[in-house]
């Protein structure tokens, strides 16, 4: 895609007759070269940003790892200030929130996508889809507050009476609402890109609309749908403020697999470290001086996690582009 206009820049030299100079004003050409370099350096900035990530994160993360007893990465819980750096707690917490969010987003998002792509009239879709997209624009801190003040008492605690005020389930639901538009819009685009021939063939065989939607259009659009789910999962993994406000055990959390309790995710662990008292000069148990540096380590972990998911998701996106 990127090279679309690439070949068109040099038509002048291609048609040049030997001996006749059609290359034009040299000043114009020099200016053209300068412009190209300026634009290229803008593109190079994005590479510099990635390099910045790698340098900023790995240096301090390695410093952290070399300064602690590596056994502490697998013990009891995530309490950086007392030298307990159990990665498992963060990863499992992240997976719980992401899992709950994906359950919400997959059901609501895919159903909305099927409705908008296959059932809704064009006018209805033109009104409904923007509203859905507005949902994606809600700042995450607002959803976090909503999860704590509304979802937790009105939904989670009415169903599970033993759930705490701060719980991973409420946070997961709110994150699910946040990523639903992502799933819905990308999946809807993928389904609408399925050629009508397929639908017509299905109807021709006497299939009903449900059957056509689920057995013909859905499988044909599967690359795009999977891509939307992967991108949404990657977003959920990195979501910070919703979980920080609605579920973050302040200070740290013991290893837990119970979504009705407060817990930590990789992202909230970073936010907690950044907002706590005496983080830079932290005292306390052994290795607590490394508490702040653990932030870089968790950051690197989170970066690697989302990068991996994005790469996989990207493969699927490329595949839809090639499919039809």
């Amino acid at each position: 895609m990127a090279g679309v206009g690439g070949g068109l820049g040099r038509p002048l030299s291609i048609g040049a007759t030997p001996g006749v100079d059609l290359s034009g004003d040299p000043w114009r050409q020099r200016k053209e070269r300068v412009v190209k370099w300026v634009l290229f350096s803008a593109a190079a900035v994005t590479l510099a940003v990635s390099a910045g990530f790698v340098i900023a994160l790995t240096g301090k993360a390695l410093e952290f790892l070399s300064n602690i007893d590596l056994g502490l990465l697998w013990e009891r819980g995530w309490f950086p200030r007392r030298g307990l750096f159990d990665v498992r707690t963060l990863v499992v917490g992240t997976l719980m929130v992401t899992g709950i969010a994906m359950a919400v987003a997959t059901s609501l998002g895919l159903a909305s996508a099927i409705y908008l792509a296959e059932y809704a009239r064009p006018r209805t879709r033109r009104i409904l889809k923007p509203i859905l997209e507005v949902l994606a624009g809600i700042p995450s801190i607002v959803l976090g507050f909503f999860a704590l003040e509304w979802i937790s008492p009105n939904l989670v605690q009415t169903v599970f009476s033993d759930a705490g005020t701060f719980n991973l389930l409420s946070a997961g639901i709110a994150v699910g609402v946040l990523i639903t538009p992502l799933v819905a819009t990308i999946s809807e685009d993928a389904m609408r890109a399925v050629p009508d021939d397929l639908r017509e063939a299905s109807y021709g065989l006497g299939a009903r609309k449900v059957t056509t939607s689920l057995r013909v259009v859905f499988p044909a659009a599967i690359s795009g749908i999977v891509a939307s789910l992967i991108l949404a999962a990657s977003r959920a993994i990195g979501e910070t403020m919703v979980v920080f406000i609605a579920a973050a055990a302040s200070g740290g959390s013991l290893y837990t697999v119970d979504p009705l309790e407060a817990g930590q995710t990789m992202a909230t662990a970073i936010a907690s470290l950044a907002t706590g008292s005496d983080q830079v000069a932290a005292g306390g148990g052994q290795d607590a001086g490394q508490a702040f540096n653990s932030l870089y380590f968790v950051g690197l972990l989170l970066f690697a996690f989302t990068l991996g998911l994005n790469m996989i998701g990207d493969r699927f996106v490329q595949r839809i582009r090639e499919a039809y």
Binding site: G83, G164, T165, S250, G252, L254, A262
Partner: peptide
Amino acid sequence: QDPVARADYESSPNDNVIIEG
């Protein structure tokens, strides 16, 4: 022992939540 409290208590940054608890 390390000078810390036990790890398994409900913690909150908001005093109201502590009073509620």
